[in-house]
């Protein structure tokens, strides 16, 4: 009985002091150490399935640069500067349901220390996009050189099948443009003009949104996606779209 009470009241002593060998042994079992207890004799661990998965399909980077974004989810404070910057940069209309990126809020009452998490979302610029497959007129397409999923608005018939196909709710019909609109990593407004990042990443005060090149081993995005200390995951991996937006925390 006594032992049980002790277990319930254990304090996480932090993972900073876990030896690298220990971590690697756990990783081989498909587990990442999330905490140590009782003077380092007890470990808590989570499955690294998602991160293993993420780096598996990140193996192929057919584009140069291979644009990608990593969200340091734990750092997001929903100040929404990213959303404001996106609206201003990309002329997103001020109507309900019109946005290229937004922030979702998750309540985590049971989590140690946190009451809530904010989860920024945007187009995942998938390697296997559903939206481009279902579009009848190739109005939306994956650009051959940049890998960004773009819109050719004159071809959009407004059937909204791409909205149904997208597992990320990344698309909306823009009444002003008379076409479906979506995040294009600020291709027309910034990247093609020589800027190195997107408006949202640029505006983020908390270093949540890290924009970069997955095909470059020196790039921060590459390093975060390929490290083994922290779990890295993608949203809705079961949809099989091979997204290029990754999430991490801790």
């Amino acid at each position: 009985m006594n032992k049980n009470i002790d277990l319930n009241n254990l304090q996480n002593e932090g993972v900073e002091n876990v030896p690298m060998q220990e971590r690697r042994d756990f990783l081989k079992m498909g587990l990442a150490i999330t905490g140590i207890f009782a003077g380092g004799s007890l470990f808590s661990a989570v499955s690294t399935f998602n991160s293993a998965h993420a780096s598996d399909f990140a193996k192929k980077y057919p584009y140069k640069p291979h644009y990608s974004m990593v969200m340091q989810q734990h750092r997001c404070i929903d100040c929404e500067r990213c959303m404001d910057a996106c609206v201003a940069t990309n002329h997103v209309p001020n109507v309900h349901g019109a946005y290229r990126t937004t922030i979702l809020e998750k309540e985590t009452p049971d989590a140690v220390g946190g009451k809530r998490e904010f989860i920024p979302i945007l187009c995942n610029q998938c390697n296997l996009p559903q939206c481009t497959r279902v579009c009848p007129t190739k109005a939306t397409y994956k650009d051959k050189t940049t890998g960004i999923v773009l819109m050719d608005i004159k071809k959009c018939i407004g059937c909204l099948t791409c909205q149904e196909g997208c597992p990320y709710n990344a698309r909306y019909f823009n009444e002003e443009k008379k076409a479906v609109d979506k995040c294009n990593f600020c291709w027309d407004t910034r990247l093609s003009k020589g800027e190195k990042d997107t408006a949202c990443a640029h505006a983020c005060p908390a270093d949540v949104r890290i924009f970069g090149d997955l095909s470059n081993q020196e790039d921060r995005v590459f390093k975060i996606v390929h490290q083994i200390e922290k779990a890295v995951w993608v949203l809705r991996p079961e949809a099989g779209t091979r997204p290029n937006v990754f999430y991490t925390k801790g």
Binding site: C135, P136, T137, A139, K155, C156, I157, G158
Partner: peptide, 26 residues
């Protein structure tokens, strides 16, 4: 229901997407 049906008449013909079920259906 379709927002811009007149575009369909043009682009379904000159920019067909053969992986699209909605194109085949139409």
């Amino acid at each position: 229901e379709i927002k811009l049906p007149w575009r369909m008449a043009i682009w379904n013909v000159i920019s067909p997407n053969l992986t699209s079920n909605i194109w085949w259906m139409g």
